[in-house]
């Protein structure tokens, strides 16, 4: 495996939830995600996977009980210690939530929404953005001809690809996917997976998943998170066949990991 450029990286990232009692969900994670690769983050539930993903897009800003320390860098620019408006930052980093979430508007507007916020497009240009994004998300053929229908009318799998198209329309560098197939039936999940595979040549994708099989199928690199710490990050083959850390080995084998703090 050759070394590639890093698209997004964290530096000693710490996230603490202070709702009832103080819980440190991320305990100083420093990790880089390579450009034009698909990296999956795996680990047992509650290990901080989603927390890590959301902090790459500053989504903790709307969660008052979450405190973030450390920083994230996209192309060398800090995400947190910066004067740039947060929406400009988020634009470069797309996010697809676990639950299929259409915006309450038509299919067309779902995709065009973000693009319209940032730039003044003519109608023809906007049509073009929508078509390109839907094509990239492998959804164009299924929705062409009923773009005015509400987005919520699509099936769960289609909505998930619609969400991908919506993120792609603002032309991000990084795409964050939070267990995007876990709410889907196997056939729809396969379609979304296939879409992600074709997208990774153009975008740097970071995907949280709980499925090791899925990681094996589509990941280039796998990061293993355990109790808020990064245990190891390595190429997919090494990860599953010859991991460095004993805990990774046990996790891959499906054994309980003895708590060694």
């Amino acid at each position: 495996m050759t070394e590639t450029d890093t698209a997004i990286e964290t530096d000693d990232l710490r996230v603490t939830y202070t709702a009832d009692q103080s819980v440190e969900a991320l305990k100083g994670v420093s990790v880089g995600f390579a450009e034009n690769e698909l990296t999956t983050i795996i680990g047992p539930s509650g290990c901080g996977k989603t927390t890590l993903l959301k902090s790459l897009n500053r989504l903790h800003d709307i969660e008052p009980s979450a405190e973030v320390a450390g920083d994230v860098y996209v192309e060398g620019e800090p995400l947190y210690d910066t004067d740039r408006p947060v929406p400009e930052i988020r634009r470069k980093v797309g996010y697809v939530p676990q639950t299929p979430t259409p915006l309450p508007m038509s299919i067309y507007d779902n995709v065009a929404y973000g693009a319209k916020l940032h730039d003044d497009y003519s109608n023809a240009e906007l049509d073009d953005v929508v078509e390109t994004s839907l094509r990239k998300a492998n959804l164009w053929d299924e929705v062409n001809g009923r773009l005015d229908a509400p987005g919520a009318g699509l099936s769960a799998g289609q909505i998930q690809r619609l969400c991908l198209a919506r993120s792609l329309a603002v032309d991000p560098d990084v795409l964050l996917c939070d267990e995007v197939t876990s709410a889907l039936d196997p056939v729809s999940a396969k379609e979304v997976e296939d879409t992600l595979e074709t997208l990774k040549s153009e975008y740097s994708i970071v995907m949280v998943t709980h499925s090791m099989e899925q990681s094996q199928r589509i990941a280039d690199t796998v990061a293993f998170l355990y109790l808020g710490e990064l245990v190891e990050k390595t190429g997919v083959e090494t990860f599953f066949e010859d991991p460095d850390d004993e805990r990774t080995e046990r996790f891959v084998a499906g054994e309980t990991i003895v708590d060694t703090p």
């Binding site: 797309g94 915006l103 973000g114 916020l117």
Partner: peptide, 24 residues
């Protein structure tokens, strides 16, 4: 998720409210 999805395409919090939440 509705708020997160809208924020992540680069909407401001007011745009999330105005375009998405009030409509939903």
């Amino acid at each position: 998720e509705l708020r997160e999805a809208t924020l992540s395409v680069g909407a401001t919090e007011w745009e999330v409210t105005k375009h998405v939440l009030l409509r939903a």
